[in-house]
Design a protein around this nucleic acid. Sequence first.
RNA 1: UCCUCGGUAGCUCAAUCGGCAGUGCGGGUGGCUGUUAACCACUAGGUUGUAGGUUCAAGUCCUACCCGAGGAGCCA
Length: 431
Amino acid sequence: MAQRVYIADVAAHNGKEVTLKAWLYNKRSSGKLWFLLVRDGTGIIQSVVFKGGVSEETFQACDEMTQESSIELTGTVSEDKRSVGGYELQVSDIKVLQVAQEYPISPKEHGTTFLMDHRHLWLRSSRQHAILRVRHEIVRACREFFDGGGFTLVDAPVFTPNACEGTSTLFDTDYFGSTAYLTQSGQLYMEAGAMAFGKVYCFGPTFRAEKSKTRRHLTEFWMIEPEVAYLDLAGDMDLAEEFVEHIVKSVLKNRSKELEALERDPGLLEKVIRPFPRISYDEACEILRKKDHEFKYGGDFGGTDETIISEAFDKPVMVHRYPAEIKAFYMKNDPDDPSKALCVDMLAPEGYGEIIGGGQREDDLAILQEKIRKHDLPMEAFDWYLDLRKYGSVPHSGFGMGIERAVAWICGLAHVRETIPFPRLMHRLRP
RNA sequence: UCCUCGGUAGCUCAAUCGGCAGUGCGGGUGGCUGUUAACCACUAGGUUGUAGGUUCAAGUCCUACCCGAGGAGCCA
């Protein structure tokens, strides 16, 4: 009985007889022989079937096999330069588990809508494999960074009782007769975690009901959010740049084949080395002004503004100290200029926009209460949050990074929808 | 919510001034002993998003609606 191996490992079995459990990716015939391209999730290999080298039934079966038919192939691994992977399988026997029905995704071109409708099948394509393996590496590297840095994983709830930044962007659900919202950030809970453990992070899905239709938006996306006690804004920026550098280095080291498959120039990613430029909001506005770009001072940056600012640098840029007015209530004001907030956004290069948002939190009880009032938020909803400022309040900071935007940037993709296995968009809830 | 563009065979797209509904891929049949999204020959496949209107004649022009894509705002 031949040993069952995965396609990724065939090189170690050169000259030996093995069995592959796979699916048919594509096939070509040339009279008395068949070339079967098969995949098993770990790779693709060309298998050669000669008439006379197999039984009459097996040779006939090659003719009847359709794309994505499930098959077990037994044969000898041989090194061959004519084959794309450098190795091929000289087939001696094939067991067909199922002849697949006519498969909708052909090796030729398709439109995005069609492919998204068949996302459950599209995942079998090599390009999607490359993207999702980079995503996996990014997630692994994120966890590695925090786990190795003394952080404790303190995951935040998905159901939340109240809106902390207005209800228009929240999904609501019936929760035994009252309303629960799907979380749009775990941050407030991370602040509680930081006061308990010092350094914490959470990683999970978050939800935004914004009616956004752009290449950078999903209604459900994954965010990793660290929060650290006794950390100021400068320390927060140190942490963010060390974190992003680690992720990019990990992908370059462990997923170079995938980047190559995606035709992503690694040279651009190799420039992502600390320190990253740090500019204030005012300095960012100056960049926009020098480029003769129309922008109203005091407002938040739009997608185009972010692109222009990030194009001034060849690595991620951190923009800090935005006007306090346009930032959330929990941001601490800059003691040197109370009109500014101690916050930071990290903008990815090449126009990929904001991948990180964070900053130092307001730690004074009275000021925080005043801000909640100013933002017209219900004080009673924040009773537990205000407790954190009553019992040993300390300066603390944190940030959140959207995984999908980071994947889109590192892979060089035009849209975030391919960075998550089953994207949720304003007009897409299926499959 | 607003702006722009689009909807024709399973898929990808054509169809000139309003004048016979077409190609490539995929499917089917046949051929080929080294193919690389193989190739060659033949073949089947259509309520042109929906409803109405103009016209001798509508995929094409007009009106309304539905669906989708890109962008704005907002955000990670």
